[in-house]
Amino acid sequence: MRVVVLVKQVPDTWSPKRLRPGDFLLDRAAADGVVNELDTYAVEEALRIKEKHDDTTVIALTMGPPPAVEVVRKALQMGADEGVHVVDDALAGSDAMVSSLVLAAAIERIGFDLVITGVESTDARMGVLPAMLAERLGAAQATLAAEVKVDGREISVRRLAGGREFDVVAPLPAVVSVVEKINEPRYPSFKGIMAAKSKPLTTLSAADLGLDSNRVGLAGSATEVVAAEERSAERARVVIHDEGDAAARIVEFLASRKLL
């Protein structure tokens, strides 16, 4: 079985995120890039499936600028077998439509039975990519999984969506996104870090995937940012210490804001 696991590099969660004036792209230089935390659950789940099913190859895939290769390395250190990095200046500014186009092309080229992703990127927070990939790949969509079981050519998933829980069954090939309740991601071991150095890591350009530069990046995107405005959170930020009157003072505050 070939399991492709998607990992994305995002700005460190605690760092302030901003759009560059001029082209309104995420200012990646302003913060350290780290692996999207939610994708480490996807890697862990792929590795657990590999441990249960013989003849499974786990391929970690990312699309992003040159430093993004670090997140593929991290997946290899955790235990993925191979890595693929789609990198091309022409991809800068790709929106969700283009990202899904490029990643679907890469997944098809890699060959897959199962695609596993995180539930959303912590930077853009769209949560649309897994469903878009299923549509593009013509694969079953078994997303928002809190539990995954693979049995032959069938997969069963416990799906958490909103206040509801679903038992879902799908044939392979399938696209699965995992919620963070599914497992506890492992840390790379020393052995894993050493082993990762000799694992195959392939670099692909848009042209390698048969995509013209006018179909990707800003040029190919279906949406375009036309303005961005930073809004300082207008918080009063009054902090008091309780001296027995805290409840009364909260009530006073709420009343002053007409919230009672």
Binding site: A96, G127, P130, E135, G162, A222
Partner: peptide
């Protein structure tokens, strides 16, 4: 904009080749 609503929007956008914006 629920988790499922976003999935519906993403898939539909691919199907009809229209832009998708969330939240």
């Amino acid at each position: 904009s629920t988790p499922e609503g976003k999935e519906i929007a993403g898939r539909l956008a691919v199907r009809i080749d229209g832009g998708v914006l969330t939240d």
